[in-house]
């Protein structure tokens, strides 16, 4: 059960939201059938939703599948019960990150997305070079994967040749408001 003592009110709020979203699911499995990465998932979407319906939020959020999800919205688009399955996957990821249950491999996605948001918080817009640098460093510290560290290194010069690299990223003028938005959203 997910209502363990480790849960904070924030966990409960996300779980509440997920259960609300999952309520109408009648387990036809169309989400899993159409999922472009369904074959890679350890627990397919309809089973994740079932776990949520049964109150096993933590178990669902521990599945590797939620980090395979590409947020393509196919499940939501085709659901005969109008269940926003993609939003449920988001809720599971949010829950999982709060609990820190993601494995090192899954963590790579979390590290990337955290680095992404950090970047936005500071500049209001994405600074790609800095994002990649931070992501690679943190990902390396996470799983010590050397191939990962140097992967795509060859792309750099090619991108520079095509004028696709901006060493100095853009910044918005009113960065304070961006910081305040992040604060108000508890990020």
């Amino acid at each position: 059960m997910s209502n363990e003592s480790t849960n904070t009110p924030k966990h409960d709020a996300i779980e509440q939201m997920a259960r609300e979203l999952a309520r109408d699911c009648y387990q036809c499995g169309k989400c899993s059938a159409g999922c472009p990465v369904g074959e890679r998932m350890d627990v397919v979407p309809n089973r994740l939703i079932r776990l949520i319906q049964l109150g096993h939020m933590a178990k669902a959020a521990a599945a590797g599948a939620i980090w395979e999800c590409v947020s393509c919205q196919t499940c939501t688009a085709r659901c005969p019960q109008n269940v926003d399955c993609a939003a449920i996957m988001d809720a599971l990821r949010e829950f999982s990150v709060l609990r820190g249950t993601a494995s090192p491999e899954q963590n790579r996605t979390v590290i990337f997305q955290r680095a992404f948001l950090d970047n936005i918080r500071r500049y209001g817009r994405l600074n790609e070079v800095e994002l990649i640098g931070r992501f690679k460093t943190k990902a390396f510290l996470n799983d010590l994967s050397i191939p990962m560290l140097f992967k795509d290194a060859l792309l750099g010069p090619q991108m520079i040749r095509r004028g696709k690299f901006h060493l100095r990223g853009e910044k918005v003028r009113d960065r304070d408001v961006v910081t305040r938005i992040f604060e108000k959203c508890n990020q």
Binding site: M17, S71, A87, D90, A91, R93, E94, V97, V110, F112, Q113, R114, F116, L117, I120, G124, R125, L126, V172, R173, D174, V178, I181, F182, C185, N186, Q187
Partner: peptide, 18 residues
């Protein structure tokens, strides 16, 4: 002075920010 939409990172990690 537009700001970033938050993309996948926002909707995956923080529904309010999204």
């Amino acid at each position: 002075d537009w700001i970033c939409c938050g993309a996948t990172a926002a909707h995956s990690l923080n529904h309010k920010l999204a």
